[in-house]
Design a protein around this nucleic acid. Structure first.
Lengths: 135, 135
DNA sequence: TTTATACTATACTTGAATAGTATACTTTGG
DNA sequence: CCAAAGTATACTATTCAAGTATAGTATAAA
C-alpha cells in the first residue's frame, strides 16, 4: 500500500510553489530542475494539478504555473486525489460487483476497511501546504 | 493507494478459520471454494500466513490449515504484513537514498506521510478477528 | 509398504499499471 | 512572425500483480 511516484513529485511541486510569493508564476522547467523531477513528467503532473484547480497555468512567453489558491486551502488529500484519484483501500469498496463474497455491505472486513479508509482521508486532510511550507 | 487482492483473500481466509471451532483443521480446497478464491493462489497465501505464524499447516491425508492462535490475537495489521509486508506509504520512507531531495529527515511532506502511515498502522491494529467474526 | 491426499518450493506466464518519453500542436509576448 | 511555454495524445519500457504449473515431501490408511 503506497502512494505513487507522481504523487510524491506533485507534493514537491506544490510545496515549491507554496514557498514563493503569492501569485508568483514559474516555468515547469525550473520546478523540475530544482526538485529533481523529469521535465516531461513534471508537465504531465502539473496538468493534473491544473485540472483539479490546485495550480493555474499561463501559456506563451513568460508563462508557467502558480498556485490557484492560498497554500492554506490546499491539503495533501487534494493533491493525492488530483494525481491518483480518490483513495480506495480495497477494490471492493469501489466495485462491489467485484467482491467475491457479493455481500460487501454485510462483510465485517469491508466495513473495517471502509473505516480505515475514512481515517486515511481525514489524516490527509489535516495537512495543508501553508503549514507544510513552514515546518 | 490500495491493498492488493492477495491481502483481501487473506482476510477472508482468516475470517473463515476464525468462525470455526478452535483448532479445527480444514483443507485449502474447501476455503478456496467457499470463499471463491483460486485454489493455487489460496495455497500461496496460506503459506505466507503460515510463515507469519497466523495459521498452522498439517500435511498428508486429513491435513489442512487451522489458526495458530486465537482470533482475538490476530489483527488486520498482522494479516496485511504477512501478505504484503509492512505498510510503507511512500517509497522515501523505506529508501531515503531514493528521495530526490536527499533530505527526508528535514522534509515536512515526508514527516507528514510518516505520521499518516502511523495512523494507518494503529487503525489496522484496532481490528482483531474475534471482533470481525462476530460483527 | 504402497497409495492417495494434502501441503511445500520454486519457477513461470500474462496482463495491467507505473514511470517516463516523443511528436505535434496551441497560445502569447515582444 | 517567431521563440517560449503550456497542451494533447500517443507511445514505450519496465515492473508488479495475479494467477498457473511442475515437481517434490509428509502422512494416514489400506
Amino acid at each position: 500500500m503506497r502512494l505513487n511516484q507522481a504523487t510524491d513529485y506533485a507534493f514537491r511541486a506544490v510545496l515549491h510553489l507554496s514557498r514563493l510569493p503569492r501569485g508568483k508564476v514559474v516555468e515547469a522547467r525550473l520546478i523540475a530542475e530544482e526538485e529533481h523531477i523529469p521535465m516531461r513528467f513534471m508537465l504531465k503532473i502539473l496538468r493534473l494539478l491544473s485540472r483539479a484547480g490546485i495550480v493555474e497555468s499561463y501559456r506563451g512567453v513568460g508563462g508557467g504555473y502558480a498556485l490557484a489558491k492560498s497554500p492554506a486551502e490546499i491539503t495533501m488529500k487534494d493533491v493525492v486525489e488530483a494525481v491518483e484519484g480518490p483513495v480506495h483501500i480495497n477494490r471492493c469498496l469501489i466495485a462491489p460487483e467485484e467482491c467475491n463474497k457479493r455481500n460487501t455491505a454485510k462483510c465485517s472486513v469491508h466495513k473495517a476497511l471502509y473505516s480505515i479508509q475514512q481515517a486515511i482521508n481525514d489524516k490527509l486532510k489535516e495537512y495543508d501546504f501553508e503549514t507544510l511550507s513552514k515546518s
